[in-house]
């Protein structure tokens, strides 16, 4: 078993098409991996009807056992909604197991090799492992926290995530996602659900902490303070992602013609950047942002954020709001 491969763009298509020419990649959804992969394999004849019936029967047995466990053996029936949720939990465990394979063809081979109970058991073990890993990541995220007090960042790191992991029901509702309500990371977590979402969120957060911590805490503190006040918020409430704020400031500074890695922006920087950006087409603006980020850092996480940063700048320029998405310092200082 290899490491978890749960990012949509990293499960490669090796040999998948060769299995059957009629299989369509677009029919396989990562948010519903086992079912859609099996469904597609059945549709194009990679598995026969008998195999499909056996899988259905095995899933039924797994669901019946889980319902009995859920009701403590005290009820022979449950609400349809409850049954759907429990079924989604079983499928989630199967999805996690298959996502540890590095390609669709390997995942299909695994479905052919192992029956549902075996895959389900292995999926449960992996989910348990992911919970432990997430706890480790939370500890790391807290120990590398940014040295600036931000209300939603602190609330998320000190309470929200811990509470989420503590309350995570890996048995009956493993698929449930309680997304961070107050503090979003710059790079999203795609369509990940359950513990996969939490793990990805924490990985993003650690990458953002690492980047922001490279700067002088006083400079970051001032940047957040100015941004919060400009929005009429409390001094410690930016209401935004701190990492994005730093990156946007650096990018706009670079675009304004200041070829350094500083985070400080003045009004004239924003004016110069707007003037330059307005002359560019979408494609040009996109590559300028990518160039800016490449100049600023070679951090892998930052380069993945290129599209997000470009979209925010593009939208802000079109709506004449660039000044509102960055933190502009006092010109007289």
């Amino acid at each position: 078993m290899t490491d978890l491969v749960y990012y949509d763009d990293t499960i490669e298509d090796d040999g998948y098409a060769a299995l059957s020419q009629s299989m369509q990649y677009s029919n396989v959804l990562f948010g519903d991996y086992y079912r859609t992969l099996l469904g597609e394999a059945l549709r194009c004849g990679y598995f026969d009807k008998e195999f499909g019936d056996a899988s259905r029967r095995d899933l039924g047995n797994a669901l019946a056992s889980l319902i009995t466990e859920f009701t403590g053996g005290e009820s022979t029936s449950v609400l349809q909604d409850t049954a759907n949720e429990l079924f989604a939990s079983i499928l989630y465990n199967l999805d996690v197991r298959l996502m540890f394979e590095s390609s669709h063809s390997k995942a299909l081979a695994l479905i052919a090799e192992k029956d549902v109970p075996e895959l389900y058991y292995e999926g449960q073990k992996l989910v348990e492992r992911l919970v432990v890993e997430s706890v480790g990541l939370l500890v790391k995220a807290r120990s590398t926290r940014i040295a600036v007090s931000d209300k939603s960042y602190d609330a998320m790191l000190d309470g929200e995530i811990k509470s989420w992991i503590y309350r995570y029901d890996k048995r009956f509702f493993a698929h449930r996602t309680r997304r961070s309500s107050g503090y979003q990371t710059c790079l999203g977590c795609g369509r990940l659900r359950g513990i996969l979402y939490v793990k990805k969120y924490l990985e993003n957060l650690i990458a953002e902490n690492k980047y922001v911590n490279k700067f002088d805490p006083d400079a970051i503190g001032e940047l957040c303070f100015d941004y919060a006040l400009a929005r009429g918020n409390e001094y410690n409430n930016t209401g935004s992602n701190v990492f994005s704020l730093v990156l946007l400031n650096q990018t706009v500074r670079y675009i304004s013609g200041e070829e350094d890695r500083d985070v400080v922006l003045r009004s004239h920087n924003v004016r110069d950047a707007v003037r330059r950006l307005r002359k560019l087409q979408d494609g040009e603006m996109r590559s300028l942002v990518a160039d800016a980020l490449a100049f600023i850092t070679d951090d892998a996480y930052v380069s993945k954020c290129s599209n997000t940063i470009w979209r925010r700048i593009d939208e802000a320029v079109k709506n004449n709001r660039l000044k509102e998405i960055v933190s502009v310092g006092h010109d007289n200082i």
Partner: peptide, 13 residues
């Protein structure tokens, strides 16, 4: 698109 296995297609009772 193909039909997927759902709770309703599993004969539980």
């Amino acid at each position: 698109m193909r039909s997927l296995i759902t709770v309703n297609t599993i004969p539980l009772s």
